[in-house]
Amino acid sequence: MTEEKLFTMVGIRPESATPEKKVSRRKGFPWVSVVLMTAIVLCCLAAELLMTKDPGYLDLENFNVAPNGEFLFGTDTLGRDIFSGIWYGGRISITIGFFATVIATFIAVVYGSVSGIAPAWLDNLMMRFAEIFLSVPGLLLVLFLQAILGQANVLTLSIVIGVTGWASIAKIIRTEVRQIRSSEYVVASRCMGGRFFHVLGKHLAPNFVSCVMFMVVMNVRTAIVTESTLSFMGMGLPLEIISWGSMLSLAEKALLTDSWWIIIIPGTFLVTLLMCITNVGNYMRKAANRKGSNL
């Protein structure tokens, strides 16, 4: 193209872009949650440094002791120090939550993408299946699978929770892929020569990542809750492996002895971590769509 004088443009005014209004992306950023969450995770990772006593040691002389100078959070019915147990066990709970989500997300991405690209009948079938999966009370499914696998350990538990948690993410991915697949910029991109991976990387992925991030974060939360509920019911990790869930499984006995610290303290940590995760997730969801109300 030669750079000669341009043709006449009717009614043209010199146009220059309006300076960008600085919409602060920091608005609403959940500082407290992120800081708290990081603090808890770091403490759990650095458990060895923080522990005052061996968390697995059954100090039978000192069982059911209320929080005092020596045992900062008290001891449980078996005599284990709860303070050390929180940090050490937190590792396990967080690990399970993380791994289960990774597994679930991976399954969901594959399933959702295939369903999104598939012909209508296959897509229908796959989505029916996912919906049925979704409406079965998740825990029953986990119970069922866990009963088959026998004694649980961190790995099997992660797998079981992951395998039962993919359905919600998969639905979202499939909807997004279906929608994006026929939008015009994808058509344009393919017209001008974009192959599958180019379209996937440049057009599809950036558009569904933001929608999915929220669900993934929520999935971590669900996984942690599932693990603790399972351990509580006795189907999760055995008592010897300390996690927040297994600590809480002693809680029923605690009721009888009125040892509130066994229930309240691990529970508080659990709830706090989950709240932080939820806040981060909500922030991500809000950041993905901003628009004002017309009402």
């Binding site: 939360r221 809750v225 603790s228 509920t229 509580f232 019911m233 809480l248 809680a251 029923e252 009721l255 009125d258 509130w260 229930i263 309240i264 529970g267 659990l270 709830v271 989950l274 709240m275 939820t278 806040n279 909500n282």
Partner: peptide, 22 residues
């Protein structure tokens, strides 16, 4: 509501039993 949804069901049950029953 968010706080509520973060609390595991069994823990909430235990807490309520602790408060109201015990």
């Amino acid at each position: 509501g968010t706080l509520l949804s973060c609390i595991p069901e069994f823990w909430l049950s235990l807490a309520l039993i602790l408060i109201f029953a015990v």
